[in-house]
């Protein structure tokens, strides 16, 4: 299957260079609605849904394959290959910030810069490292997801699975942003919150921008500082906003920070 269909890839904008936006856990490409259009005048803007999220091909979600973030990074690279993109600016939010880091480590020649929005290389606390969460908290999240998916009726599933012959469902789909098939969501939650990519950080050679929210329960300031220190030649910009989604809560600041990063001359890779 084409990776473009598998990852529900949408392309817009005019420009030589491509910006590829990758959403995080709990939502889909709609998350970039307030940010991505600001780059369409100068960039080719590529949006995608991770396999298992949004309107990606859910049948492609093989839990064994997607038990690490590496598989998602591989998917992102496949999209770049299929669209023949080079000198790409990869923008990833939350867990996808790490997916973008992994992709850039794998194919540094193809990726010019990475923008890490509210990133965290590990959510769980560890010796000498504050991630912000304990294992029990993640179990609590899974429980919260379970009780919320009681409302996941059988009626929604065929809709998400794609139903081109019933256009009236598309309307309903617009109201179901960020809904995910429960078993997949549960699995992806585990993969996300139990991931640990700290060891990969020093291997990144691509210039990176870290967008750190001022108050973010998921990726606290200490985590942003840790990343800044571990990523050679990275820039850290503090966005004055609360929460984990600066691209939704402070889109103007987010856009300005990214534009400034892209306008600057490429810093020498260390």
């Amino acid at each position: 299957m084409s990776s473009l269909k598998r990852n529900n890839v949408t392309v817009s904008g005019a420009g030589e260079q491509a910006m590829v936006f990758v959403h995080g856990f709990g939502c889909d490409q709609h998350m970039w609605r307030l940010v991505a259009p600001a780059f369409e005048d100068r960039y080719q803007v590529v949006l995608l849904d991770l396999v298992g999220s949004g309107q990606s091909d859910l049948t492609a979600y093989n839990p064994a394959r997607y038990s690490t973030l590496q598989a998602h990074a591989h998917d992102v690279l496949e999209v770049l290959h299929e669209l023949h993109l080079n000198q790409v600016v990869l923008v990833g939010h939350s867990v996808s910030a790490m997916i973008c880091v992994l992709a850039a480590i794998a194919e540094p020649a193809r990726i010019a810069r990475v923008v890490l929005v509210a990133p965290s290389p590990r959510y769980l606390n560890d010796e000498g490292y504050v991630g912000g969460f304990e294992r029990a908290d993640i179990d609590e999240l899974l429980e919260a997801m379970d009780s919320n998916y009681l409302g996941w009726s059988a009626g929604v599933t065929p809709l998400i699975m794609g139903n081109p012959e019933r256009p009236e469902l598309a309307q309903e789909l617009n109201h179901s942003f960020c809904r995910t098939e429960p078993t997949i969501a549960r699995h992806f939650a585990r993969v996300t919150f139990l991931s640990d990519n700290r060891a990969d950080l020093p291997r990144l050679r691509t210039p990176a921008l870290i967008l750190q929210c001022a108050q973010d329960a998921l990726a606290p300031l200490a985590v942003g500082n840790y990343l800044h220190q571990q990523l050679p030649g990275s820039q850290l910009v503090l966005i004055e906003t609360s929460g984990h989604c600066p691209h939704l809560s402070a889109p103007a600041l987010t856009i300005a920070a990214i534009k400034q990063f892209l306008a600057a001359e490429t810093p020498a890779a260390s």
């Binding site: 856990f25 939502c27 307030l34 999240l141 899974l142 919260a144 409302g151 960020c178 998921l218 984990h244």
Partner: peptide
């Protein structure tokens, strides 16, 4: 609860900003 907060930050908060409402979240 912390788990609920994780769910709120990753799911509810973006949804509220995207579609101005959320319903029946447990």
């Amino acid at each position: 609860t912390i788990g609920g907060r994780l769910h709120y930050e990753t799911h509810c908060a973006p949804l509220l900003l995207l579609q101005d409402q959320v319903r029946e979240i447990s």
